[in-house]
Every structure is written in structure tokens, then in C-alpha cells.
Amino acid sequence: MNTSKAMNKLKAILIDLGIPRESLHDDTLLHRDLQLDSTEIVEIVLGLKQNLGIKVKLGGRKDLTLAQVCDRIEAEMLTQSQSSHVS
């Protein structure tokens, strides 16, 4: 999955949560800019698992931009892909 596909999937989940599309940019921060609470973080994590089959950790204290979340999505996809090749 390339960056734009990961970003599109992430944005689709956020739009489903009721966040306006025009609020979503690469440098948008989950907490400071979107004011996401813990229940919405849960929904993003579950949405990524259900749609992409990956487990992305978003629970830390560090506020992440959408681009940083996409980096984590891609890293997890790469790890998963490598482990499936090994097995």
C-alpha cells in the first residue's frame, strides 16, 4: 500500500467518525487539531484492523499527524508482508 492509499483509508475512517473532509491534511494532529477522544482512537484502531488487517498503536501520549499515522500503517503493512514471506 502506498502513502496515498493509506492516507485515503485513514481519512475515510475519520470522515465516518463525522470529521469534515476539509479538516484533514497531512499535518493535522489527532488530538490538538481534531480533538479526538479515547473512544474515537479506539474506532480508528479497530477500523484499520478490520479494513487493512493491521494493528497500529495510537495510544501514546505523543500527538500524531495524519502523515505520521500513515507512516505507522505502512511500517506495519511492511512487517506483515515480510513475516508472511518468511513463513
Binding site: 473512544t39 479506539v42 474506532e43 484502531v45 479497530l46 484492523k49 478490520q50 494493528k55
Partner: peptide
């Protein structure tokens, strides 16, 4: 925690996904 929110999660996600929680 709000029960209708959890209801939406439990009914919207499969068992494998819910195992993250």
C-alpha cells in the same frame, strides 16, 4: 463508558478485530 457506543462496536466489528480490545 456509554453502552450504545459499545453496542455499535460489538455489532460492527468481527471477533478478530474485537480481540484488539
Amino acid at each position: 463508558a456509554y453502552i450504545p457506543w459499545m453496542t455499535k462496536l460489538v455489532e460492527g466489528y468481527d471477533r478478530e478485530t474485537l480481540k484488539l480490545l
